[in-house]
Simulated scan of single mutants.
Amino acid sequence: MYKIEDYCEKLQDSLMEYFWDEKEGVFQNHYPLQEEENWIYWWHAHAIDCLLDGYLRTKDKKYLIRAEAEYNGVFIRNGNTFLHNWYDDMEWTALAILRFFDVTQDNKYKDQVLLLWEDIKTAWNEDLGGMGWKKDQRDYRNTPANAPAAILAYRLYQRFLKKEDLEWGDKILSWNLKNLTDPETGFIWDGLNRLGDGKIDYEWKYTYNQGVVIGALLERYEIQKENADLELAVKIAEVTKGEFTAACNGIFPYEGVDDCGLFKGIYIRYLNLLAEKSEEHSEIKKTIQQNASCLIERGINKNGLAGGHWDAQEEKCVDLAQHLSGIMLLEMAYRLS
């Protein structure tokens, strides 16, 4: 019988061996390295998150050293700032850095989070409601720009007790639930007004949208203890499993190239928080453990890398995004074990 922590360690070590660029001081996007590599800022927030997962599992300071190196490298590579054009990208970064503060209690991380938060709040669309996707397209409001912002607001409130942050969390989450949630099934839609026509992208179905709304509901539940939030989170998890895994024997499928490689890992991160809430959620735990077992048994290649499919090995090119999702899956399954 395998030990899941051994595979967590295997994927964490492969992350450093095959993606870390010592010269650039950051992770590269692909292995093998491509001739032209774009800077994809938001992937690095999840790299920091994964390294913090490794530290929380082992208490080995090597993970903090790696995370600090990535943190510094991203800051420099992004122009000596964490501020960015894309609001959702800054939200992922703020959430990761806030976890870094939680682990270390170093106020330099807190200061960066608060700086990001002040900029993120400018995403709110006063005329239409909701958080805009990016600074040059504020009228396109989507779940990836809203639910993570609500999570951040609620977490800031829980740590620093600033009432304004609680109000922001309630305002943002309420907008997301009212405008981008199927009232019958609880399924979370991606966004609206992308093309300036006021329409919702019903055909855009992604796991991470479900995950971040679950995450926001759980943070509000921690504060307000309303069972309705927990019940809706469970409903979203149930419809997500049916929507994405019914044809795949319970395994979350490959969602697409590039950014899509991160989506199911993010979903699992927040699904795990729901699974940890109660022993009553045994089916949710089983879903995570089933996917982790599948990845371990079928999806890790000879280099210890996880590709876009959790049920098949990728022998050609593995994206950093894909491998990070694999790490998130195994680290979350370890927490449940």
Rank of each mutant, 00 (worst) to 15 (best):
W20T: 07
D21H: 08
D21V: 10
K23N: 13
E24Q: 11
F27Y: 15
F27G: 01
F27D: 06
Q28Y: 11
Y31T: 10
P32K: 08
L33D: 00
E35V: 03
E36F: 11
E36I: 11
E37D: 13
E37M: 06
N38W: 11
N38E: 12
Y41F: 15
Y41G: 03
W43N: 06
H44V: 03
H44N: 07
A45G: 13
A45L: 08
H46T: 01
A47P: 05
A47C: 12
D49E: 13
C50D: 12
C50G: 10
L51S: 02
L51T: 00
L51I: 06
G54C: 10
G54M: 09
G54L: 10
Y55L: 10
L56N: 09
T58G: 04
K59N: 12
K59G: 00
K61S: 09
K62G: 05
Y63T: 06
I65W: 06
A69P: 11
E70A: 15
E70S: 13
E70W: 06
V74R: 05
V74T: 11
F75I: 08
R77K: 15
R77E: 14
N78V: 09
N78Q: 08
N80Q: 09
N80K: 06
F82V: 08
F82D: 01
L83P: 00
L83S: 11
N85S: 13
D88V: 03
D89I: 04
D89W: 05
M90C: 11
W92K: 03
T93C: 11
L98C: 10
R99H: 15
D102E: 15
V103S: 01
Q105C: 00
D106H: 04
N107G: 00
